[in-house]
Simulated assay, not measured.
Amino acid sequence: MASVAPSVAPLVPPVAPMVPAIAPAGTPVRPPSGAAPVVPPPPPPAAVQPPPPPHPSTGKDLDPTQLAELWERCSKLDQQDYFEVLMVERTAAPADIKKAFYRESRTYHPDRFFHLSNKELKDRVNELYKRVTEAYYVLRDDAKRRQYTANISGPERAQKLRFTETSEAETRAASKRQVEEQIGTHPKGRQFYQTGAADADAGRWSAAERNLKMALTYEPANTRYKEKLAEVQKVLHEEARKQGDAFKIR
């Protein structure tokens, strides 16, 4: 019997295993047959820091126009009176002056400008703030306001723009004169007037009339004395009329 040679499988070169290609980020990956495509999420964007908000209280955000306006406001300070500093009329009511003071003091408070790089401008803003406070100190007081208004209305306006110690003394003297004009300048006249006024307050009308007439002998032109005497005599006239009516035969 003839021998049969064993069968030998043909040699096949080895095949490298299939390695799936890596698709770029965001490219759909082909799934197995019948499945929906899967899209991998895109990579997160690089973190972006927002710009810092402008600081409204430091003056760093002033643009060139605002800086120019600030320079102009400060440069006029030495030529302005207190009404102009607060930007109010001379006839402004006390409430309007107070409102203007709050507005201007907030606008030019040094804390808003402490980051200014220009030292001269910073110093001028500080001086402007002080002048705003000074203006309010004077204009809120009726006596000081009257004296100051008279000062800046005269020929020496340029020298009277600031309320100094001299202005304070002038105000006290003017107030004293006003009181004297109201109560009287003659010691005896003032004494009789004050006694007559006290009599009137207590209802002693005849005594009040006598004392007021005595006061007028010392100061016959005193308007206050005349007005008080007229008030007392009117009461006496009314009382006399009532007493006369009581004695009438009815």
Rank of each mutant, 00 (worst) to 15 (best):
V179P: 04
R172M: 10
I249S: 14
D201Y: 08
Q233H: 03
W205L: 13
K213A: 11
R224I: 04
G244V: 10
K242H: 07
A221W: 05
V179E: 15
K226E: 08
E231F: 05
E227G: 06
Q233G: 04
A197K: 14
R190P: 03
K242V: 04
K234C: 03
N222Q: 08
S175Q: 15
V232P: 01
V232G: 01
T185W: 12
I249Q: 14
M214N: 14
Q243W: 06
T185F: 14
K176A: 13
K242I: 04
T185A: 11
R250Q: 12
F192A: 09
A240Y: 04
Y218Q: 10
A230P: 05
K226P: 02
K248V: 11
D199Y: 14
R224P: 03
R250G: 12
K228H: 12
Y193N: 09
K188S: 12
T185Q: 13
S206I: 06
G196T: 05
G203E: 10
R177I: 06
Q233A: 04
T195D: 10
A230W: 02
K228Y: 09
E219W: 01
V235Y: 01
K242A: 15
A207S: 15
F247R: 13
V235N: 02
K234P: 00
I249H: 11
A174T: 09
L212P: 03
Q233C: 05
K226Y: 01
L229E: 04
Y225D: 02
E227C: 02
R250C: 08
K248S: 13
Y218L: 07
E227I: 05
A173T: 07
F192V: 00
Q194R: 11
E238W: 03
E181F: 09
R210T: 12
K213S: 15
S206G: 08
E239H: 07
Y193I: 00
Q182P: 01
Q243L: 12
T217D: 12
E180H: 10
D201E: 15
E181K: 09
F192R: 09
L212D: 03
Q233L: 05
G203C: 07
A230I: 03
I249M: 13
E238P: 00
D245M: 12
R177S: 11
P220C: 04
T223F: 05
L216F: 02
V235C: 01
F247H: 12
Y225G: 01
H186C: 00
G203Y: 07
Q178C: 06
A173P: 02
Y193C: 04
Q182A: 14
K226R: 14
L216I: 02
Q233V: 07
K176E: 15
N222P: 06
K188D: 14
V179G: 09
A207P: 08
R224G: 07
E209L: 00
